[in-house]
Amino acid sequence: METSVLNLPEREYLLPGNRTCAGCGLSIAYRYILKALEGNAIVAVPASCLTVLHGMYPTTSVLIPCVNVAFPSTAASASGLVAGLKALGRTDITVVGFAGDGGTHDIGIQALSGAAERGADFIYICYDNEAYMNTGTQRSSSTPLGAKTATTPVLGKQQHLKDMPRIMEAHSVSYIATACPSYPADLYDKMRKAKTKKGTRYIHISTPCPPGWIFPTKDTVKMGRLAVETGMVTLYEMEDGVFRLTGRSRSVAERGKLKPVGDYIKLQGRFAGISADNLKELQTWVNSRWAGYLKRA
């Protein structure tokens, strides 16, 4: 039976009164990730919004153990945790490396690539809010074309984003999935599946960010939904190399077509004043990527 709102576990592992901004997309995603892990996990977290969510000593707002690690070393620390737990014979605990897009695409990629090559037995989750949101919205290699950030303030970023799941695919890891907090049941199912696999598993979650993307806090879920419906984000999973579209992306592929990218970007302040050339380029890029997914599915 597919998970729905009525059979998702009610128990919360994320406590109210935490430090995230109002309307945080990461917060929604993290609730369901923790539900899927059932509290039996250790997370390794580098500098990111998730560190902020976990809170300041001597209190924390999360009910599972967390190790705060240096920015480039998420996957290395997670490998170490796996080795330590193995030595202690505690194999029932899931180790999770959890970093933002800056900590994955830019700073943490070396350690992640190394761990994936060794097949270290942990789940790596990248929550992708498409810039360094924690430090004030600086451009990352996951920022899409045309988006204005603190370091690309005039024209917006002039390069396309880096497709991290495809880089992970090149490592032949056992499970790769993309998800979005606007579809929590889909995210929950993917986490449950990842938990049953062995070796390095990679999950990429696109999390809308109201202050960074500049939209009203109430629209977080709507923005995630639009991202999927316009093809800026595609929901899929790859089990042992077998590609499959899931959830809303599958239903868009089977019946109907993508909405124009303009529907998505016009609601976000970071794309204000995007040039016509950039918009056209972005649409072409989305179309060709979507065509690639359809061919594989």
Partner: peptide
């Protein structure tokens, strides 16, 4: 750190 509701205050 130990878990607590209201880590960031009310």
């Amino acid at each position: 750190a130990s878990p607590s509701i209201g880590e960031a205050g009310r």
